[in-house]
Design a protein around this nucleic acid. Structure first.
Length: 465
RNA sequence: GGCGACGUGGCGGAGUGGCUACGCAGCGGUCUGCAAAACCGUUUACACGAGUUCGAUUCUCGUCGUCGCCUCCA
């Protein structure tokens, strides 16, 4: 039985979902600057969720939005002297590239705020009709005091929020804590026409509106980073309940933990951001993905280069262990470890530990059982979006390879042939006990990412690293 | 200040009222011309103080510390 931690009830709940249709919405990025590792974590951990639900044979409808208009985007586009749309398109591409490298499955729908302006306007109209919103000289605002259940998600009191309010207080707001649904545009700012004046949507309204437009009034699971709990998700609830007071908005709220750098949250405001693409390029999307697997999704997770290297080692060891078998669900123990761990609020860290316990006992197994163990581990990792295949991270060009092998009078045809000839030359040196030269060759071929391992019984083997 | 989370071995990170997770790194060994890989072995941690208990890292209270949110954030 799948249990998930629901932020709304602050407790682990046995989830009840309809096999035929599970509606999931994940708050995606504001496309204002390049994706960082925190964005990666959110995308990957909820990708684990979606993949696991599919494994359990739920029919999932997965929506992840793109916020392509907001204050920051406008500000940034002014700085760069390009349009908000140009900036948004460019950054969206970077996000898509990163998602692909991380092997996150594409959402069924990926709505953009600017594509739903009409619907957003209708939504705001409804809120005004329902007396939850009012119009001023600067925009349209949601009136918090009209919504009794405000702050049930974050567990605050309204007094806390008022005292902590740090946003510039608009003169014409009824209460400082009221938030904008529609902001009238200033000079030069992009705008859309509305019944109240030219402007743009506020940050929170797009999610309520797009969820309704695409998934309907009630969804099963709403995900996002835990830094969105307040105010973003709190305001989404206020909007959705304001528009449809008698409908349940979200059944399960899931929030992932933040990524820390030396104990501090990685965030735009802290300025301690590590860009996703840097690490995807240096390592491999799968290594970064595996890094996220090593921690339970709600825990804060510590990031450092060394920890990423550690992930690479661990992943490579798993790849070595499962080498030469096809992914198949054969070993019951592995499958039960997988399901029991995932059922406990997607405890991927526990799963990994328990699987390694089995691997450590594997030497005692007879051949077929060992093979089944490997197959099943490979299968389970496939379900979670890993290939367990060594990726060729060697970025040498063909010309560089030709040049390298030329040094040893080897004509480069393909890599296997060239390496074989290389090894043969080296073997003859070893036979002549010219170990100095042989060791030099072994050393030099590391430059093109190949390590040669001499074995007593099997002669030698080579593998790319 | 308010609300919340957390403090586990060198680092990371699960978990449990009693059965020394696990990973990575390190160290020793087998093997090897050497190295690597592989395999074997190895370093017995749960902030501190008190309480409950036959027994607490796990429950309760207190202390100290760290972190998050308090309308920018995945």
């Amino acid at each position: 039985m799948l249990k998930l931690y629901n932020s709304y009830s602050n407790s682990l709940e046995e989830v009840e979902l309809n096999k035929k249709q599970v509606k999931i919405y994940l708050c995606g990025p504001t496309v204002q600057s390049s994706p960082h590792l925190g964005h990666g974590r959110s995308a990957v951990v909820f990708d684990f969720l979606v993949r696991y639900l599919k494994y359990l044979e739920y029919k999932v409808i997965f929506v992840r939005n793109i916020t392509d208009i907001d204050d920051k985007i406008i500000e940034k586009s002014f700085e760069e002297n390009i349009s908000y749309a140009e900036l948004g398109t460019r950054v969206s591409k970077e996000f898509h590239n990163a998602y692909e490298e991380l092997n996150c499955i594409d959402p069924d729908k990926e709505p953009k705020a600017t594509e739903f302006i009409d619907h957003i306007i209708k939504y705001i109209k409804k809120l005004i009709e329902n007396k939850f919103a009012y119009v001023t000289k600067s925009g349209v605002y949601y009136e918090i005091s009209k919504f009794d259940d405000y702050l049930l998600l974050s567990g605050r009191t309204k007094d806390d929020v008022v005292s902590g309010t740090r946003v510039e207080i608009e003169e014409d707001k009824k209460n400082p804590e009221d938030f904008a649904l529609w902001k009238f545009s200033q000079e030069d700012e992009p705008y859309w026409e509305s019944p109240w004046g030219n402007g743009r949507p506020g940050w929170h309204i797009e999610c309520s509106s797009m969820i309704e437009a695409i998934l309907g009034k009630t969804i099963d699971i709403h995900c996002g980073g835990n830094d969105l709990i307040f105010p973003h998700h709190e305001n989404e609830i206020a909007q959705s309940k304001g528009a449809y007071p008698n409908e349940k908005f979200v059944n399960y709220w899931l929030h992932n933990g933040m990524l820390n750098l030396s104990g501090k949250k990685m965030s735009k405001s802290e300025g301690n951001i590590k860009l996703l693409n840097d690490y995807i390029n240096e390592f491999d999307g799968q290594v970064v993905r595996f890094f996220f697997l090593k921690s339970q999704y709600r825990s804060p997770q510590e990031f450092s280069l060394d920890l990423l290297k550690e992930s690479e080692s661990t992943l490579n060891n798993l790849i070595e262990f499962t080498k030469g078998v096809n992914p198949e669900p054969k070993n019951e123990k592995v499958l039960s470890i997988f399901e029991e761990s995932m059922n406990e609020d997607l405890n991927t860290a526990k799963m990994l530990g328990d699987l390694f316990k089995l691997i450590n006992e594997a030497d005692a197994l007879e051949e077929q059982k060992l093979k089944d163990l490997k197959s099943t581990i490979k299968f389970v990792f496939n379900v979670l979006g890993f290939e367990l295949i060594k990726k060729d991270t060697n970025r040498k060009t063909k010309d560089e390879l030709i040049e390298f092998f030329n040094e040893y009078d080897i004509k480069f045809g393909d890599i296997d042939q060239a390496v074989n000839e290389f090894i043969n030359i080296r073997e003859s040196l070893r036979k002549k006990k010219d170990f100095n030269s042989a060791d030099k060759m072994r050393e030099s071929i590391l430059d093109i990412g190949i390590s040669i391992e001499d074995g007593t019984y099997s002669g030698w083997s080579w593998k790319t690293s």
